[in-house]
Design a protein around this nucleic acid. Structure first.
Length: 413
RNA sequence: GCGGCCGUAGCUCAGUUGGUUAGAGCGCCAGAUUGUGAUUCUGGAUGUCGCCGGUUCAAAUCCGGUCGGCCGCCCCA
């Protein structure tokens, strides 16, 4: 490492890029606010146990992607790989949150997963996150998906995304189906791909969305989940689909949509796009009614999603351009001192003002141009003596004299 | 973790079958007389050719390793 470089899979967000980052977060936050969701944050690391238990020991995230370390007290800690487990933990840790259900939250922050970086995948990445706790009704599913669609719309990318929807059923349906599916693949194990043989041990549902041709042939004959949902699960799924239709949100049913975290039940969904490479999921989530009880809390339903900020940035419109500043161009020490007071008065009137710390007039005018300033306030000895400034419009080049105490008015218009 | 491609100035790239002081555009800096930018003109600086090692009289160019990036698999945001 001859050059100082950031850790693999991490990146600096330089100012231009950070603006686009903020634009995504600000947009999401504002939409969530319109739905009555309140923002909160949890620590970026937790006891390893939380993720291991919550997400599932056999999942890829837990078994091979966690950033886990021991602290000086020999506790095993892990940088969070996703937000849901932490929010559920916070719900359990802070009893007052259960006093007023449903709890609707918005959150955003960095996540960490030890993976091979590629387009749309980094080791430190950032997510926006929406969760509803304590609402077992399908209305909550519809609402969180609606928020997602609105955010994508405001970012100008909804028309390049497709909403994929599936039901994983309630735990009873899921267990039953899992057993049936497992038996089916076991009977044909020799024909499965190597990857799928592993999946059979870990999560047979995953075989359903294998890209291997041999697996696909087997999948065509496999028992379908839709046929094995119990009545309650079918009704729930129907209510979600009807609600989305009523809300005017188009979707596609995707029976192969399974998702990698163990805690999902009922609704699973993803907004996917073909425009950002192989990692096409831009936002995904589902219902996790058993998670909070599993973690030791009071049985509480949950549903939510997470969206990848970097992936959204790849698609999103440019944020609005920044307001153009006014630049102070004082000539000489006395004018420079005077300009400080004027600049402050202008800023207190809400006008963006930049003043260099040094430089000739030419230098300052060049800087003004690079800053895309709209105007320059030029104050030399002569102007200073007369209590005026030369106000130059940098687009037209026109310049005229303005009394110092009239500058705010002149620049406000 | 696996497979493929790639790595030359701040940025985008050129660099012939290995052969002397490695180039362009953009950007940057400085000038074109007195207190005026963006245009124009003139001049200038910049690279351990990702890093380490090997082959060779000679390597940016060939070989190996390593680090990093990209693309795909796995999986996911």
């Amino acid at each position: 490492m001859s050059k100082l470089q950031p850790v693999r899979g991490t990146h600096d967000l330089l100012p231009d890029e950070y603006r686009r980052f903020s634009h995504v977060v600000d947009t999401a936050r504002d939409v969530a606010r319109l739905y009555g969701y309140r923002e909160m944050a949890t620590p970026i690391f937790e006891f390893t146990e939380l993720f291991a238990r919550g997400i599932g020991e056999t999942t890829d995230v837990v078994s091979k992607e966690m950033y886990t370390f021991s602290d000086r007290g020999n506790d095993s800690l892990t940088l969070r790989p996703e937000y849901t487990a932490g929010i559920c933990r916070a719900f359990i840790s802070n009893g007052e949150l259960a006093q007023q259900l449903p709890l609707k939250v918005f959150a955003a922050g960095p996540m960490f997963r030890y993976e091979r970086p590629q387009k749309g995948r980094q080791r430190q990445f950032h997510q926006i996150d929406v969760e509803v706790l304590g609402a077992p009704e399908p209305g909550a599913d519809i609402e969180v998906i609606s928020i997602a669609a609105d955010i994508l719309d405001r970012l100008g990318i909804l028309d390049r995304c497709v909403l994929k929807l599936n039901s994983l059923g309630d735990p009873q349906s899921r267990q039953a189906y899992r057993a049936i599916l497992s038996d089916y693949y076991l009977a044909h194990e020799s024909r499965l791909s190597e990857d799928s043989k592993t999946r059979l041990q870990r999560n047979p549902l995953r075989i359903l969305d294998s890209k291997d041709e041999g697996d696909k042939a087997l999948n065509a004959q496999a028992p379908s989940f839709a046929d094995h949902l119990n009545e309650a699960s079918r009704d729930f799924f129907a209510a979600v689909k009807d609600g989305l239709t009523a809300a005017g949100i188009p979707f596609e049913i995707d029976p192969t949509l399974v998702r990698g975290l163990d805690y999902y039940t009922h609704t699973a969904f993803e907004f996917v796009t073909a425009h950002i490479g192989a990692q096409g999921t831009v936002l995904g989530g589902g219902r996790y009614d058993g998670l909070i009880a599993e973690l030791g809390g009071p049985p509480t339903a949950g549903i939510g999603w997470a969206g990848g900020i970097e992936r959204l940035m790849m698609l999103a419109n440019e944020p609005m351009p920044l307001p153009r500043p006014v630049v102070m161009v004082p000539l000489g020490a006395a004018a420079e001192a005077k300009a400080l007071g004027i600049a402050r008065a202008l800023r207190r009137a809400g006008i963006a003002v930049e003043q260099d710390y040094r430089g000739t007039m030419k230098r300052r005018m060049q800087r003004a141009n690079k800053l895309k300033a709209r105007a320059a306030v030029i104050i030399g000895d002569d102007e200073l003596a007369r209590g005026v400034a030369q106000l130059k419009d940098l687009d037209s080049g026109a310049q005229h004299e303005v009394a110092l105490d009239k500058l705010v008015v002149a620049l406000k218009g």
